[in-house]
Design a protein around this nucleic acid. Sequence first.
DNA 1: CGCGCATTTGAATCTCAATTCAACAATATC
DNA 2: GATATTGTTGAATTGAGATTCAAATGCGCG
Lengths: 204, 204
Amino acid sequence: MTQRKSRADRRADLIDAARRAMIRHGAEGVHLNQIAEMAGLTSGAVLYHYPDLRDLLIEAHHAGMERFYEQRIRKAAGIADPARKLITTIRSGLPEGPDDAGVRLLCELGGAAGRNRVYGTLLTTLFDRQVSMYQAILETGAAQGVFTLAGDSETIGRNLVALEDAYGYRVVARHHSIDAEAAVELVLGYARLATGNPLTPIPR
Amino acid sequence: MTQRKSRADRRADLIDAARRAMIRHGAEGVHLNQIAEMAGLTSGAVLYHYPDLRDLLIEAHHAGMERFYEQRIRKAAGIADPARKLITTIRSGLPEGPDDAGVRLLCELGGAAGRNRVYGTLLTTLFDRQVSMYQAILETGAAQGVFTLAGDSETIGRNLVALEDAYGYRVVARHHSIDAEAAVELVLGYARLATGNPLTPIPR
DNA sequence: CGCGCATTTGAATCTCAATTCAACAATATC
DNA sequence: GATATTGTTGAATTGAGATTCAAATGCGCG
């Protein structure tokens, strides 16, 4: 038998297994057995912890978003210079390649969000948090005089998140000319226009 | 029995039924019986025309995209003034509300495009066509001197399509403050920045 | 140690959608 | 108007995945 675990540990495992299974099989096409297999358990054990599969899927999506957001914050955490911070943040919002797990999961959710209120709310909340994150960077840069904002910070923030989203989809769908690098450059291009800062990859 | 129809007519009906069924139940969660019911037939009849369901779904997605794209072209067709044409085109790329069928179907596809090459290609192709559409408008406006482009037309076109995409998702997911109107205004805001044209709703 | 509870299995069962197909009905063909 | 062809049904079958549950197993604890 598989290593026996405490309730909390096992639930954490299952959330992670569900996340990975959804990336492979789709947010809605995923099957109980696939999640069980990912976790190295039988379907009965999964059901023991989550009698309603939907609860597990929601928790898994929630966890995936939290992980995605936290990672972005962490990557930009130590950077004081607003220009460098903005560049780093933009990079962290785009997939590293077509198989990037974090972005793939978010993409899976897009369609379901139109039919499912819970998923819609989840995605909407993430969007707003990311906008706030950008606003903070933009306002700081403006206050320091390194950014000359071409509009209010909320609008620019929204556009940055929107562009990331959309180009993330392109990368994941394997657009022939919009790969991970090109996507970064496209978003950076808008950021330059909106901040009046050259945002060179390695600013002095 | 339901009215009997020719092969071609019935297939057209089924494509439309599949499109509507997918919008209601999801691109991947849709069932044969739901499509049959939408078409007013039994599952056997559907299978008679499409032994492999996937073929029907692909054709339905293809038709949905074609319809979406053609509609955009048609709405802007008679307009000579580049500024008005750009405004109209932007409007036509965004959903009219959270239940907009055209955009809903495209959103459904986003997640699947990462796992399914056919869907990925379909979406990528649509993206590129829309970019070309915008490029033509931008270039015309620049040639006439009414637009002062803040970058090359391809980049601006890509950003316009990307913003439409992303805000379309927000509207469909019922974002509390980004409704259909706000989405139009956000994309227009970028278009103003990129073209240097005020793009007022009713230009003289 | 041994009791008792929590976790997991595996097999049996249930459920529901896909699939098959013989029979039937509408339409076309001559 | 007879016959062939095409489209459709409805009922039977199959199959895959969800669900249930008694039994087995590991673990904490007195």
